[in-house]
């Protein structure tokens, strides 16, 4: 069930994961927002059936109807990036998830079908190829909404064409510490890419993890989107590596001190809030990448990032927890992993 969290992909010291999502719809059927329960149910069945035989390089799928899942289970899927918060609210929806959690299909989210593949490290091309294989398998069993001029037709005009959103989760601590992050973010948005970060109070960036994705879906072929995003990501990786080198050259002791302090808190704290956890996790990830901290697999850091979220913590404890109880459970979980 680890999926991308395994953390064994190329460039996985800076790129957490690569994702490709394809939006597809069934021809001449109202989009999910106005689709009645009966026809929504038959979409779920058609999609599940189409993946029953498995897909080359992916394996088998299991279908989960949202109506059969409790709130907590739905939220856990959201926290593991397997479904979106929007799908979690759709009782007529379903999540068809591969055994290894790398591939999933959201049924009756905003579009009838959202194919999604998430791989560890920088593997946008591979993620696109796998998603496309799933697309081919599914297409045999239904008639897609497609137009010669405009490509795949979607509920929102921002997805029409390829219906493809490719993205990477990228960890950029050194660019942030050296005060260069805003320049990078600005440059990226000027070339047709979107960037999202986790921000706390005000404009503070938390955890230094950003998601970069393509914005344009019409008039660019999938390969172009892949090439473009991969190229830009490689450039940002280059900048981050340069910033790390400069940091070590000029402020080695300060950086080591920061990392060891964060390690000390992570390993010993009895109460840990989620934002603090993400902040410290970023330092530790940097420490591992720089070789300052040793023998900590990336997979453990990814697990801490995902499993310390609210719903995952509660599922693990087998009961609902208050915010204060979660902070204690979070600290316990982290100590057990490190």
């Amino acid at each position: 069930m680890k999926g991308w969290m395994e953390g064994n992909g190329p460039q996985s010291n800076i790129i957490l994961s690569s994702r490709t999502r394809l939006a597809r719809n069934i021809n001449e059927l109202p989009f999910p927002d106005t689709l009645d329960a009966e026809r929504a149910g038959s979409v779920v069945k058609t999609v599940s059936d189409s993946l029953e035989g498995g897909v080359p390089d992916i394996g088998r799928f299991e279908s989960h109807r949202l109506q059969d899942l409790g709130q907590l289970e739905r939220q856990v899927l959201v926290e593991r990036h397997l479904i979106s918060p929007k799908l979690a609210k759709q009782n007529n929806g379903a999540a068809v998830i591969s055994d290894d959690s790398i591939a999933s299909v959201m049924v009756n989210e905003e579009d009838h079908i959202r194919i999604q593949v998430i791989l560890p490290g920088l593997q946008i091309r591979k993620a696109w190829e796998l998603a496309s294989n799933m697309d081919d398998a599914m297409e045999q069993r239904m008639e897609y909404a497609y137009d010669e001029r405009w490509g795949y037709l979607t509920c929102c005009p921002t997805n029409v064409g390829t219906g493809m959103r490719a993205s990477v989760m990228i960890h950029l601590p050194a660019l942030n510490i050296t005060g260069n992050i805003n320049k990078i973010l600005q440059a990226v948005t000027q070339i047709g890419l979107t960037i999202r970060g986790l921000y706390g109070e005000g404009t503070d960036i938390i955890g230094n993890v950003f998601q970069i994705s393509n914005q344009i879906t019409l008039g660019r072929a999938e390969e172009e989107i892949v090439e473009n995003l991969t190229g830009v990501t490689m450039q940002i990786i280059g900048k981050e590596k340069e910033a790390r080198r400069i940091l070590l050259e000029n402020n080695r002791v300060q950086i080591e001190d920061r990392i060891w302090r964060s390690w000390g808190i992570m390993k010993n704290a009895r109460i840990m809030q989620s934002q603090e956890c993400l902040k410290l996790l970023s330092d530790i990830r940097l420490g591992v990448d720089l070789g300052i901290l040793e023998d900590i697999p990336v997979s453990v850091l990814n697990e801490i990032m995902i499993d310390t979220q609210s719903a995952s913590l509660q599922k693990r404890s087998g009961k609902e927890l208050t915010a204060a109880e979660r902070d204690i459970a979070r600290a316990e979980l982290i100590r057990s992993k490190l």
Binding site: Y144, G161, R220
Partner: peptide, 16 residues
């Protein structure tokens, strides 16, 4: 306005 383009150039479903 949204995409800077008006024509799809990507994947084509096998059926179509």
């Amino acid at each position: 306005r949204v995409h800077g383009n008006t024509a799809h150039t990507g994947k084509i479903p096998n059926k179509a």
